[in-house]
Amino acid sequence: MSQIKTNSIITNVFNCTAKLTSFKKISLIQNTHRFYHPNTTEYPKPHSYFPYLTYAPDSIQAKILSNCLQKHVPNTGINERSLINSCNDLGQSSTMLSVLSAPSNSAVLELIKFHLVTSRLELFHFASKNDKSLEEIFLKRLELNKPISNQLSALLSHLTSPFPSNLDVGIQELHNLSNDFVVLANDIKESHDFAWYSKRMGLSVAYVSSELFMAQDKSENFKETMEFAKRRLDNWRNYGTMYNNTEEFLWFQLMSGLSFVRSQTA
């Protein structure tokens, strides 16, 4: 009788161990559970290649897209035709369009996403050489649009067309960009209040308006765009100062009001 009991205990222990091992395996494979402590995979660095693009920088997808941006987009535009031309250049079949469209439902959208992500990476390399000011970084990002400047309005209209995937890519990349501006300019006094959002939102608005201006700009070497961008940045700073002053004023008034009430009721 006791032997049967011992056997059943051993079986239970075995079952538990098996369950634990399988649980560990599953948790290792899935990695979908949120951890108690933040980890690197959960919050990737904003200026990294992965996971925004799902292929390696030296992969055939990246080669096709960068070749397309350099050689075909300025003449043929942001469309499937220029992607096919790029595939033909590199001896690839039409299958590559299916490969490119898999992560974001459209090969053309992937081309735009590639431009946005690689430009952000280039910006990171530019800023990490020396300490750069926010204005320098901001203008550098606009300069990176120069090679495809004649297609800029097509790019913007594609990103703003009301399909969820387009808006997803556009808004996410815009947020990453404004976050990069703040981080790369060493303006990382992280405020855990509404200013965190307003700071980034203000920069996003400044950037989008400058890009819209650039799409219509015919001046030499985009001089007017750069001037326009500088004015937008100044406005953004002024608004920032105004925001801080208002906040300080209201806080002071509140505190003095409270003190006054206290003094009267004491």
């Binding site: 499937e80 096919i84 079949s93 039409s94 299916s98």
Partner: peptide
């Protein structure tokens, strides 16, 4: 539709 496969008009190789 997601796969969106097929030989494009200006492509050289059939699939």
């Amino acid at each position: 539709n997601k796969l969106d496969a097929g030989k494009r008009p200006n492509s050289t190789e059939p699939l």
